[in-house]
Design a protein around this nucleic acid. Structure first.
Length: 587
RNA sequence: GGUCCGGUAGUGUAGCGGUUAGCAUAUCUGCCUGUCACGCAGAAGGUCGCGGGUUCAAAUCCCGUCCGGACCGCCA
């Protein structure tokens, strides 16, 4: 046996015991009459003390950081004044009878235990060293515990874990597919699943009743701090349920997970917002509710007002919204304006409260509204009003981006609760693409419309149809999204028609699924959690990469394994693929 | 596809037109009676991402390019 104890588990109670330890050398402190070797494993660190007369003395003093060693010896209580509370094993030390180097390490490319501030590409290239850091290991273990808590809860609730294929036909979540050529069927391709959407619905048709899976999903889109090309969803689906049933079960699951893993109590029930209210008040369908800063509507104040830009916006049926902030520097306002413009706003109008009036920004034009603005916003002396004006969606989205930027600028979230969870409900069924002026689905094409609104399909008012769709929002991240599904073939057909799919196109893409609906389909619905994102928020990490063992960078490259890579010509021939544009050769 | 920020010893950083390219840490050597991020002394370590341009002179200014990060578009 290599070892009897984890290094980090040694305590005063082990004093006098003979132990065998194995781990990595953290550091060696060398003195004329003894050397202190700090040994590390996944549970922590402990000190091995080697006196000059110890046969292992010479071996110990030659140890290098990150080498793997095995130590046999006796645990000894440290003398008075030699104990430390700097680490949990600080009351004891191990006096070795033997020290064996199992694997010598080169000098690591970055300081393994203090990689704070090391370039992330270097950490990713040597990910196995990066993962030796206690913080990274803690993230992996957190993730594992979240997964275990979910599994235990869903298993107890009668959910059946079913795996679905990785090589499949693409199911439309609207993203680009990763394609896999088929050697046995030249010229044909599998797609990696963007989600197991159709499969889980088919499992309901099959009578599984309650399904879940930690599903690997693949989407070939540009990446962000909270997006990877391959990622993990907690995917689940339930039969004979209403939206309330799904929300209730997921609330209980989420509360269970936070209680079990973090000891945090989430509210019961979760706050709820409709899509419209979330957008109207916070300018986002995934508002960060750790802080308030909701918008104030001042549309009525600016109808026919002196300030032309706002008056015109109101005339055109738009809105004027105000975000009330504290005192801001000109530089901060400029930064916020940059954010607003990024989201398509023409600018960011602002006012600073001074006494019973306003200065700066657009104050020359707002004399008539000053009193009402003061009353409605309650802005403090020196505080700032930030305006969003124009067509509703564009105006609130721009101001919503400003709200988030303000959070980051002033650290607004740090005063609030550690976790703010909420449901966003009543999403629109359909969304008008302004570029092509065509309708598309907001969630996905299998989402059931609200029964009260379904009659609007095919009418000019079909944009008003509410979907039985819901998102789970945590600290401004969408950590889950789902819906009650269409289970009637006729409704499915109307939905396809509404988004411009002909019968033929629908059959071609989803024929097997539309057939399945005709063989006895239970009403059903479900949800998928963005599992990596959830763990990221729980870990307090700034990037999803911090909670994924071997992540890709924001170009989709694995810097350690060097994927993606070119492949042999022979491999391409075998799968019947020719590369159209071999790399642009240097001139 | 676009915008912004960054790239200087192994690592982290300073320098922003003339420096022997500085500092910290890691590495190596020596010293040090119990340290705990030990300390002290010394040594070695740099194609200043790459290419081009401006200039008497470029790490520094300009252009291009590569790489990394954040964001917009895109993506639930």
């Amino acid at each position: 046996m290599h070892r009897t104890h984890y290094v980090g588990d040694l305590r005063a109670e082990h004093a006098g015991q003979t132990v065998a330890l194995a781990g990595w050398v953290s550091r060696v402190r060398e003195f004329p009459d003894q050397s202190f070797v700090i040994l590390r494993d996944r549970e922590g660190v402990a000190q091995v003390t080697v006196e000059r007369d110890n046969p292992a003395f010479e071996t110990a003093r030659r140890l290098r950081a990150e080498s793997v060693v095995r130590v046999e010896g006796v645990v000894r209580l440290r003398g008075e004044g030699q104990r430390t509370s700097a680490y949990p094993t600080g009351d004891v030390e191990v006096i070795p009878t033997s020290v064996t180097v199992l694997s010598a390490a080169q000098t690591p490319p970055f300081p393994v235990e203090n990689a704070e501030g090391v370039n992330e590409d270097l950490r990713l290239k040597f990910r196995y060293l990066d993962l030796r850091r206690p913080e990274m290991l803690a993230n992996l273990r957190l993730r594992s515990r979240v997964q275990a808590a979910i599994t235990a809860f869903l298993d107890a609730q009668g959910f059946v874990n079913v795996e679905t294929p990785m090589l499949t036909r693409s199911t439309p979540e609207g993203a680009r597919d990763f394609l896999v050529p088929s050697r046995l069927n030249p010229g044909e391709f599998y797609a990696l699943p963007q989600s197991p959407q159709l499969f889980k619905q088919l499992l309901m048709i099959a009578g599984v009743d309650r399904y879940y899976q930690f599903a690997r999903c693949f989407r070939d889109e540009d990446l962000r701090a909270d997006r990877q090309p391959d990622f993990t969803q907690l995917d689940m689906e339930m039969s004979f349920v209403t939206q309330e049933d799904v929300l209730d079960l997921n609330e209980r699951l989420m509360r269970h997970v936070f209680r079990e893993v973090l000891g945090e109590d989430l509210p019961s029930p979760f706050p709820r917002l409709t899509y419209h209210d979330a957008m109207d008040r916070y300018g986002s369908d995934k508002p960060d509710l750790r802080f308030e800063h909701a918008f104030t509507d001042v549309t009525d104040l600016f109808a026919g007002s002196e300030f032309k830009a706002f008056a015109d916006a109101v005339d055109a049926g738009g809105v004027v919204k105000v975000l009330t902030a504290g005192e801001l520097t000109r530089k901060q306002i400029d930064e916020l304006e940059r954010v607003a413009k990024l989201k398509g706003a023409r600018g960011l109008a602002w006012l600073r409260r001074e006494g019973e009036g306003f200065t700066g920004g657009i104050s020359r034009f707002t004399g008539a509204q000053a009193r009402a603005l003061l009353e409605r916003t309650g802005v403090q002396e020196g505080g700032t009003l930030l305006f969003g004006a124009g067509a509703w969606r564009g105006a609130v989205e721009a101001l919503g981006a400003v709200r988030v930027a303000l959070r980051d600028l002033l650290n607004l979230a740090s005063d609030g609760p550690r976790f703010a969870v909420a449901w966003v409900t009543d999403f629109p069924q359909l969304d008008l693409d302004p570029d092509t002026n065509t309708w598309t689905y907001m969630h996905h094409p299998f989402t059931a419309p609200h029964p009260d609104d379904a009659h609007l399909f095919g009418t000019p008012r079909q944009g008003e149809i509410r979907a039985l769709a819901y998102d789970l929002v945590l600290n401004g991240f969408e950590v889950g999204g789902g819906s009650i599904r269409i289970f009637e073939p006729a409704t499915q057909t109307r939905m396809f028609e509404a988004i411009g799919f002909t019968e033929q196109q629908a059959r071609e893409k989803f024929g097997f699924f539309m057939d399945a609906l005709t063989y006895g389909t239970p009403p059903h619905g479900g949800i998928a959690w963005g599992f990596d994102r959830l763990v990221m928020v729980m870990a307090g990490a700034a990037s999803i990469r911090e909670v994924i063992a071997f992540p890709k960078n924001n170009r989709g490259a694995d810097l350690m394994a060097l994927a993606p890579s070119e492949v042999d010509e022979a491999q391409l021939r075998e799968v019947g693929v020719a590369v159209a544009a071999p790399e642009a050769t240097a001139d």
